[in-house]
Design a protein around this nucleic acid. Structure first.
Lengths: 185, 185
DNA sequence: GACAAAAATTAGCAAAAGATAATTTCACTA
DNA sequence: TAGTGAAATTATCTTTTGCTAATTTTTGTC
């Protein structure tokens, strides 16, 4: 099992370049349109990353929580402004590291590049798992899998955010929950 | 723009370890359950990667075509048997390289590891794009985007394979096509 | 604890999708 | 080119989802 926690890997030295940041619950951490070239480590709290649609709806793309590393691929890899908004769902404590520094440090540090490769592969696998679930499962099953795989998330995050995360409307998720509850009896 | 073609990168030397392989149209290239630890480069043709469900349905996970690199993440990263089947949809010409060799060569070759990192990042971005489309778009829109982004694929691949690729049944895709055709008039 | 605001649920209706089967079209091969 | 099998379309019916709005529940704050 891989663990994408900074503490568990061999690159603690990176932490000396990190700065702390605190975000209060419900605050916007990174607004849409920003070119955010940092790697962050979440010490505490949950972040929600969402798209704002033309009709003003917020569609949750993913969540990141304590112990995880996060970054914005488009910004880091392609120097493009992000199309998503990052919001703290709880009071968050973060560590930020400029990606430029990571780049410089890894230019001739094969071990650090391997670590980055490991992260990229893990992220890729996670994203594939998600695609798989959209291909194979009904929304109902995606919800059930989420409950099994990450039970806390259901308790810490509003249903409406879970809804778009699994690709349905809040109303539809409410009906799914009702169906599941009645099946249990 | 990244291009995931072997010829376009600086690692042509890898090719000296590659062996050729030809697969006839409709043949199974990699069966479910195999631990396939090779990197392949597709010189010609299209491969379809699908899940076989408990009820015997084939759900297309993705396609790979000429000019692309492919590998099975679970096998390469985690040494696990693949849960998908790889099938040639056209006569295919492939180059295969043992992943062990890539591992050995990249152990102390920073440039090669960077190339691998680049591939992993590109794959990750592609997978994210796909998730995004499941979150934001209706099946109809996913189909339209596919037509725009990869028009040839529609012509070279059976509709029923496209259907599960965008997350619907073949019958439903047929209705989508009918709706779109009538809107055009 | 009372109040206000947000979230979740419910209801009613329309649209879309799934399941199954029949029919038509297409593609391949003898 | 005729025939066969697979693919695509169409039809019918059921289930699920989306949309909108009303109602209930929950949450947070004073």
């Amino acid at each position: 099992m891989r663990e994408d926690s900074i503490e568990n890997n061999t690159h603690l030295p990176l932490l000396q370049f990190a700065t702390s940041k605190v975000i209060a619950a419900s605050e916007i951490y990174i607004p849409e349109g920003k070119i955010f070239k940092k790697i962050i480590y979440i010490k505490k709290g949950i972040l929600r990353i969402f798209f704002l649609t033309a009709s003003g709806e917020e569609k949750t793309f993913f969540f990141r929580w304590e112990g995880q590393i996060a970054a914005i691929p488009e910004c880091i890899f392609d120097n493009q402004p992000t199309r998503q908004t990052w919001q703290a769902l709880e009071d968050c404590e973060l560590m930020e590291i400029d990606f430029d520094i990571v780049e410089k440090l890894s230019a001739n540090n094969i071990s650090l590049i391997k670590t980055r490769l490991g992260f990229a592969e893990k992220m890729f696998l996670d994203a594939l798992k998600r695609v798989e679930s959209f291909i194979l499962d009904k929304p109902e099953e995606r919800y059930q899998k989420l409950i099994i795989q990450k039970p806390e998330i259901i308790k810490r995050v509003a249903d409406k955010h879970i809804a778009s995360f699994i690709g349905v409307t809040p109303v539809s998720l409410s009906r799914i929950r009702k169906r599941l509850a009645s099946q249990k009896k």
